[in-house]
């Protein structure tokens, strides 16, 4: 996909619009709404990393909107991963819905293929692991930003020039993986030092003494597109939002979710 203006500015316009509306007596309330049910859909999350550790694939299902957020695992599926260097393995299930193996290594440059057979249906996906990109520094910045009081942690790294690069940034606080993550690419910033905000910094309060580990993943083009659409979906509000849609998955047969082969670099710091 060609050049797009950094979409981060558009929340500002959304915020500006929100201010207008805030001025003029707007109100919100929780409402009861009748939403249709749907038959359970397959959700696959697969990750192959270049770091030591198992390759993990989780299988779960969708539930209806008014049910509780307990997503049933898909058990008894046949899950296989292979690479283009002749290695392959069948993943073992433990606990239910989670399939893993240590038989394959994640190596940058290789293409990994996932096949899942469950409930009589099969799903496949492929992802090529890009080369890793190192984190240079992590800085704390105050001031500037929208409203002039922005406080944030930024991860800075040098983007390799001449190659299209795609990134995702995940964070652990005190060894707890945070659900918020961010994603970007090097469009219009090829070869520059890119900074990405540590995700969840607004909602999560970082207390002195907290141990924070950031993981910079180099991901492939299709996973980047999936993450971009997923973040757009989850971070949009009623104002100025596009009609929502399921993010385009790189897994076949209408599966939801993604399969990502990524190379990671981590850095840990303690909040002063």
């Amino acid at each position: 996909m060609k050049r797009i203006f950094p979409i981060k500015y558009f929340p500002l316009i959304t915020l500006a619009v929100f201010i207008v509306l805030l001025v003029l007596s707007s109100c919100t309330k929780v409402i009861n709404i009748d939403l249709n049910s749907s038959s359970p859909q397959m959700v696959i999350e697969g990750n192959v990393s270049d770091q030591p550790g198992p390759i993990v694939v989780t299988l779960s299902q969708t539930v209806n909107f008014n049910q509780t957020n307990n997503f049933p695992p898909v058990t008894g599926a046949v899950v296989r991963i292979s690479d283009n260097a002749g290695n392959a393995a069948t993943l073992a299930e433990s606990p239910s819905g989670t399939y893993s193996t240590t038989a394959l290594q994640g190596v940058p440059g290789r293409t990994y293929t996932l096949t899942v057979t469950a409930n009589g249906k099969s799903y496949t996906a492929a992802s090529t692991m890009p080369k890793p990109v190192n984190i240079d520094t992590i800085v704390f910045t105050q001031g500037g930003g929208f409203g002039g009081r922005d406080k944030r942690w930024e991860v800075k790294f040098l983007d390799p020039a001449g190659v299209a690069n795609y990134y995702a940034l995940f964070v652990e606080i005190n060894n707890v993986i945070q659900p918020d993550f961010s994603s970007s690419d090097d469009n219009l910033r090829d070869g520059d030092t890119i900074s990405m905000r540590v995700p969840g910094g607004d909602k999560t309060v970082l207390n002195p003494g907290d141990s924070v580990t950031v993981t910079l993943e180099s991901i492939d083009k299709y996973v980047r597109e999936y993450y971009r659409l997923l973040l757009q979906l989850n971070n949009s509000s009623g104002f100025e939002s596009a009609p929502p849609a399921n993010p385009v998955s790189n897994i076949s047969n209408n599966a939801l979710g993604y399969f990502s082969a990524h190379s990671d670099r981590k850095k840990t710091f303690v909040v002063p």
Partner: peptide, 11 residues
């Protein structure tokens, strides 16, 4: 018309 979990978030 439904919901699921990805990366620890409800989608």
């Amino acid at each position: 018309s439904g919901k699921y979990d990805v990366n620890g978030q409800v989608v």
